[in-house]
């Protein structure tokens, strides 16, 4: 049995290419989900509960 921790899914290619057209000034806001996805994927010791919904990342209908 593989006990290796599950790695976060890779960022979506389309999101990566699209973010490159966003100035640094706005990338933190406009691509917050991508930044979080990259951080989870690349930073090995920064895992979060897998699959949780970022409800508050942009306040939906809460």
């Amino acid at each position: 049995m593989d006990h290796a921790p599950t790695r976060s899914p890779r960022p979506v290619l389309d999101d990566l290419t699209r973010s490159l057209h966003t100035p640094l000034e706005r990338i933190v806001v406009e691509h917050a989900d991508l930044i979080e996805a990259v951080r989870r994927r690349v930073v090995t010791n920064d895992s979060v509960p897998s699959g949780s919904v970022a409800v508050a990342a942009f306040n939906s209908s809460i």
Binding site: L16, T17, S19, I27, I35
Partner: peptide, 27 residues
């Protein structure tokens, strides 16, 4: 396209560092 995505990942990590420390003079 591969080079583009690598640059995009580095930019995302840069933004993650900014998110960690907040807006600074360097940012």
């Amino acid at each position: 396209l591969l080079a583009t995505t690598q640059l995009s990942i580095t930019r995302a990590l840069l933004a993650a560092c900014r998110g960690r420390s907040g807006p600074t003079a360097a940012w």
